[in-house]
Write a protein that binds this DNA or RNA. Structure first.
Lengths: 170, 170
DNA sequence: GTCTATAGAACGATAGAC
DNA sequence: GTCTATCGTTCTATAGAC
C-alpha cells in the first residue's frame, strides 16, 4: 500500500504498472491479488487512505476558532506540502483526470470535494452551496494544480491571500 | 488530428490508444506514422493546436479596453465552454497530469501558462510575476478543474466574480 | 493441515512502432 | 497487417507459520 501510494501519486495511476508496484514493494504478485481484487481496487484503496489523511488534517484545523485564522492555517499547511520535493499536486484532482467518471475511484474523488466544501462552509458559517464556498474550492484546486505544474509554491501563498480576502469580505 | 484531439481531450492521453485514433479517423496506421513520428509527436501536435486556439481567444479579447470588462469576457467565455457537454476541463493541466515532466508535451503546457500569465499581466497593467497575476491563474485553473470534476459550470461563475474582485481591488 | 507468503511462468488483450 | 513489448490477471509450485 505504501509503495502503491507513492508511485500512484508521483508517477500517476495509468503510468504505474502492477509489476512496478510489486517490484518496489518487494512482494509477490499473488500477495497483491490476495489482498486486492485488482488494480482498480488498489487505486480505490490508495485514494481512500489519502482521503482519510486529508480528513484528519481538516479535523485538526477545527480547533482553530477564528475563521480567517483557520483558513490561514489551512493554506499554510498546503503551502508547506507544495514546498516539498515530492509534491505532485492534489491526489484527487489528479486521479479525476486518469480514472473513468463512473469508476469507484471517481466516487472517492467526489467524496473528497464534499469534505472540502463542508470544511469551508463550516469555517465561514454558510451553506455548502454558497458562492464563497465555491470560490474557496477554486482557490484550493487552482493553487494545487498551478503550484505543481509551474513548480512554484508561492502560488499557494497567493491563493491563501485570496482566500483570506474572501473570508474578510463577508 | 481532429479525431486525436477529440479523443485525447475527452478520454485522456494515456487512455487513448493509437488503434482507437486511426479507427475513429478511418485512416490507415501507416498514414499516421507518415505524418507523425509517434504518439508523443501526435500528443504534442494536439497540444500545439489547442494552444493556438487559446491564444486566438486571448488575442480577440485584447480588443476589450477596460481591464474588468476584459476579465469578465474571459471568464464568460470559459463558463460557456464549461457548460457544454463535451467539456472536460483544461487540456493543458489535464495533460500535465499524464505526461512526463521532461517531455515535449509538458513544455507546451508551460508555454500555455506563460501566455496566460502575460494575458492577465497586460490586462491589469502589472508584471507577470505580480501576485495578482498568480491569483488570476489560480482562479482560472481552479475553475476549470473543479467545474469539470463536479460538473458544475457555476464554479466558473464564482471564479469570475473572484477575478473581478481582484481587478477592482487594485 | 490450513493459511499465507514466495517466485515465476503463462494467459489473452492491447499497447506503440514499423 | 505484423512485430514485439507490456499490460492486468491467473495459475503452478514451493516454503514457512500457526
Amino acid at each position: 500500500m505504501d509503495t502503491a501510494t507513492a508511485l500512484f501519486y508521483r508517477d500517476g495511476i495509468n503510468a504505474t504498472g502492477i509489476d512496478r508496484v510489486i517490484a518496489d514493494a518487494g512482494v509477490a504478485k499473488a500477495s497483491l491479488y490476495n489482498n486486492f481484487t485488482g488494480k482498480g481496487d488498489l487505486v480505490a484503496a490508495y485514494l481512500d487512505a489519502s482521503l482519510a489523511r486529508f480528513v484528519q488534517l481538516l479535523d485538526a484545523l477545527a480547533d482553530v476558532a477564528d475563521p480567517v485564522e483557520r483558513l490561514d492555517a489551512f493554506f499554510a499547511e498546503i503551502e508547506r506540502a507544495a514546498s516539498a520535493n515530492e509534491f505532485s499536486g492534489c491526489p484527487f484532482s489528479n486521479a479525476a483526470v486518469e480514472v473513468a467518471p463512473d469508476s469507484p475511484a471517481h466516487a472517492i474523488v467526489l467524496r473528497f470535494y464534499a469534505h472540502l466544501a463542508r470544511f469551508f462552509a463550516e469555517t465561514l458559517g454558510v451553506r455548502s452551496e454558497d458562492e464563497t464556498v465555491k470560490q474557496l474550492i477554486v482557490c484550493y484546486d487552482g493553487a494545487m494544480s498551478a503550484a505543481k505544474i509551474l513548480r512554484d509554491p508561492s502560488l499557494v501563498g497567493a491563493a491563501g491571500a485570496l482566500a483570506r480576502s474572501i473570508a474578510c469580505r463577508r
